[in-house]
């Protein structure tokens, strides 16, 4: 399985976009820009829903309303972040694969946080009917925030490994 991933990463490194991002002075920061712009929208809209479920902040909208308001751009942000991340991975994928922090990020925390997010987002419609949310909603919102902090921590640690 790992062998397969490595050969996939090697193949990506040889694609025109993989070579482009790796060798051009301008492409790498622009690709980072795509990743970070997507992440801003993704994390910004995720935290908004989580914090509203937690009951932390203004109560102008219910969590259910906020969930519907942000749903489309939440997933647009996700797609942009994945596109940027995929391009960054294409440039030097095989070195990322042997990086312990990267393995934690992509192998453990991202799948966990993403699954949790999908559950929270679908439950928010029932949990968020009233201005005050049930305890389970508060705990779930808090858990999602902590999971994304784990993802970012692993990402920050990548250059140190």
């Amino acid at each position: 399985m790992f062998e397969l991933l490595v050969s996939f990463a090697k193949w990506l490194e040889g694609t025109p976009w993989g070579i482009g991002v790796r060798t051009s002075l301008w492409a790498y920061p622009f690709t980072q820009l795509i990743h970070f712009t997507g992440l801003s929208i993704w994390i910004g809209t995720n935290l908004a829903l989580d914090l509203r479920l937690l009951g932390w902040g203004k109560h102008r909208e219910t969590a259910a309303q906020l969930r519907d308001d942000l749903f489309a751009w939440n997933w647009i942000g996700f797609c942009v972040a994945v596109l940027g991340g995929f391009l960054l991975f294409s440039s030097t994928g095989s070195t990322f694969l042997v990086n312990v922090a990267f393995r934690w990020k992509l192998g453990v925390f991202v799948p966990l946080a993403l699954t949790w997010h999908i559950v929270v987002q679908s439950k928010a419609r029932t949990w968020g009917q009233t201005s005050d949310t049930p305890m389970i909603a508060k705990l779930s919102g808090l858990a999602e925030i902590l999971l994304w902090i784990c993802v970012i921590t692993a990402a920050v640690e990548i250059p140190n490994y």
Binding site: F36, L39, S40, I41, W42, I43, G44, T45, L47, A48, L70, W73, G77, W148, I149, I152, T153, A155, V156, E157, N160
Partner: peptide, 21 residues
Amino acid sequence: YASVSVIHYLTMFWFIGSVAV
């Protein structure tokens, strides 16, 4: 240093994402 970096990325995404919405 790592904790402060994490706070910087998290809150920067949070802030820019909120304004973007």
